[in-house]
Design a protein around this nucleic acid. Structure first.
Length: 300
DNA sequence: GCGTCCAGGTCTACC
DNA sequence: GGTAGACCTGGACGC
């Protein structure tokens, strides 16, 4: 079964897929040969599906649902809604692009349709993955996320698993998360987050539609154990707020090479550098340090 | 092959 | 408010 999804003018599928590392973490998977993004998605009523997304025309995405002929209209709408959310199709980037056009160094951004950051269908998945990126190599992040899906997700097709639900993680032990998931000292953080969500202690999904000023939303995100300035800044970007940079060691290194001839500076200097970009500073920062990715079809 | 050192963010305790 | 040390893992390096 194939679904068609309208996209805004200038939308660039591959540039959104490769906007950051999420596309290489399950349940996302890039099929380079066909330039498709595969994703295992969970639907209401305990159903799941494997979908493959590509952009056959400038104005729309095509979503192939494997074995989905029996899906009714409501389920099809759910799939389209998740795809629209992951690709940020309903967010307005016109102000960002207008700003980018006014800076010679960023005129390339609207030209190629960069700037949309791929996100997961749920805030929970984004937060868990962000915690798994802290204080470790990307290779270890992949190990943790693969283990979460394989050991706690539901197998929908051979070797294809859903991302685990909060309740599933919550019912496991810290020892299991430490040793089997390889989360190490992050285990109690993942457990506490999952258990709070499973108990309905707080509603992370509401962050995507929050009316709170960004600094208050930042404090709320920071209140989750294991989320520091780097992780909070980047989670905010996935919520559509770009007022924080979310600096990590890789970004620092990129900044030093691009702007300081490799010379190290403090984070305060980096923050001051992007202050001119106002509420879009986090996105300008990310565009700046990842600019060389956009020269290649598949940057990683 | 084994041991040691280091990098990578966040938390807690302490000043 | 700022800082030091602990947390855990994988990779690099030396032996």
């Amino acid at each position: 079964m194939k679904l068609l999804v309208d996209v805004p003018s200038g939308f660039n599928f591959l540039r959104t897929v490769y906007s950051h590392g999420w596309c290489s973490l399950p349940p996302f998977h890039v099929e380079k040969a066909s330039s498709q993004l595969q994703r295992v998605i969970e639907l209401s009523g305990g159903k799941s599906a494997v979908i493959r997304i590509c952009q056959p025309a400038r104005t729309r995405l095509a979503v192939e649902v494997a074995g989905g002929s029996a899906l009714g209209a409501a389920k099809r709408r759910e799939i389209v809604s998740q795809v629209r959310s992951c690709f940020r199709l309903d967010e307005d980037y016109s102000e960002f692009y207008r700003a980018a056009k006014s800076y010679p160094a960023f005129r390339w951004v609207p030209k190629i349709g960069a700037g949309r950051l791929l996100r997961a269908p749920t805030v929970f998945e984004d937060v868990v993955k962000m915690i798994c990126t802290t204080n470790c190599s990307w290779a270890l992040t992949e190990v943790m996320v693969v283990n979460l899906c394989k050991k706690l997700g539901v197998e929908v097709d051979e070797g294809k698993f859903t991302f685990p639900r909060p309740e599933t993680i919550a019912e496991n032990t810290e020892k299991f998360l430490r040793k089997e998931i390889r989360a190490g000292y992050r285990a109690p953080y993942l457990l506490e987050l999952s258990r709070r969500l499973a108990r309905n202690d707080f509603d992370a999904e509401s962050w995507r539609h929050s009316d709170l000023p960004t600094n208050e939303l930042y404090d709320l995100v920071r209140s989750v154990k294991g989320i520091g300035p780097y992780a909070a800044g980047n989670i905010l970007k996935l919520l559509g707020r770009y007022d924080y940079l979310g600096i990590d060691s890789w970004c620092r290194k990129q900044f030093f090479e691009i702007h300081k001839n490799g010379r190290r500076t403090s984070d305060r200097v980096i923050e001051n550098f992007y202050e001119r970009y106002g509420e879009w500073k986090g996105l300008f920062f990310w565009m700046d340090v990842t600019k060389d990715w956009y020269a290649r079809e598949f940057p990683f």
